[in-house]
Simulated assay, not measured.
Amino acid sequence: MTRGKFIALEGGEGTGKSTQAKLLVGALTERGIQAILTREPGGTVGAEAIRKLLLDPPGEGWGHRAEALLFAAARSDHVERLIEPALNAGTWVITDRYLDSSRAYQGGAGGVGDSSILQLHDIGSKGLRPDMTLLIEVSPETVAERLAQRDGADSDAIGGRSAAYHGDVARTFRQISQQDPRTFSLIDGNADIETVHSRILEAISPLLGESD
């Protein structure tokens, strides 16, 4: 059986990843490709429990190192119980966030360091990487408008951090994408939903066998 493809959608807050991930699964299904949608942190019972701890933390919350460990634990369960079995069964897996979010948020903006995040990933998830990562980039002004509409005055523990922190996240994402241009595709997310969706379909066309 042919192994499924693994695609991760990445980006900062308010870039439209969740919407585009859903649209991508729908487009693949229309093409007769079996595909599932998942997210990080989350995707399995254990990982969803850790998600609650991360986004609504007890007490004073987690430091960046503790966050990195929790994300790595959630991802380990996610990979072992959902992602790998699905890929081995020939199913395409589309995830809303994956490893590179940890590299950008905890590793870069949080100061934990990229090598530490990658080491945790090697231990917890055997180094599994996506076949393609779609990095959606949106201007800070557009992000602010979208978050105001989506969250109002309520944000989770990570999304509600300072503009400087999220600026560091965006810069780290771009740096990561430049390190591995072969598997990264930068998507301009400033346009309307359907236009961004079309850009994503164009980007994944090599995986679909629709281009060289």
Rank of each mutant, 00 (worst) to 15 (best):
K17C: 10
V112L: 06
I50K: 10
D96K: 05
L37Y: 15
L55D: 13
Q119D: 06
D122K: 06
A66F: 06
G107W: 09
R65K: 09
E10W: 03
I7C: 08
K17W: 05
T38K: 04
A49F: 04
L70K: 08
S102D: 06
G12Q: 02
D100R: 03
E80R: 15
G61I: 07
E80K: 15
G12M: 01
Q34D: 15
A47M: 03
T38Q: 05
S18A: 15
W92M: 10
D122V: 03
L23E: 07
S18H: 04
P85S: 08
T44P: 01
P41G: 02
G32Y: 02
R39S: 11
A35P: 00
P85L: 14
G46C: 13
L24Y: 01
S101P: 13
V45T: 14
G26C: 01
N88K: 15
G63D: 15
A21R: 10
G11N: 07
K22N: 04
A109D: 13
L9H: 05
L37F: 13
P57G: 04
E40N: 03
S115F: 01
G26R: 02
G61D: 05
G90F: 14
I33P: 00
N88C: 13
Q34M: 11
E60H: 02
D114F: 08
L54H: 00
L118P: 00
A21D: 11
G113W: 13
L24M: 01
R81K: 15
G11R: 04
R103D: 13
L70S: 06
K22E: 14
A47V: 02
E48I: 07
L55Q: 11
R75T: 01
K22W: 08
Y98F: 15
L70I: 08
A72Q: 07
G90E: 05
E13K: 05
G43W: 03
I50S: 03
I117E: 02
F71V: 01
W62L: 13
G90D: 06
P58C: 09
W92V: 05
A68M: 11
F6A: 06
R75G: 07
S101T: 13
L9W: 08
T95K: 07
R51V: 06
G32P: 00
L55E: 12
S102Y: 10
G46H: 04
A86L: 01
L120V: 06
V79I: 12
A104Q: 12
I94H: 14
A89Y: 06
W62K: 02
W92F: 10
R75Q: 07
E84F: 00
E84C: 00
S18E: 05
G43A: 03
R97D: 13
G43R: 00
D122C: 05
S102K: 08
F71L: 15
S116F: 15
R103E: 12
L82N: 00
K17V: 11
Q119V: 06
A89E: 09
R39I: 07
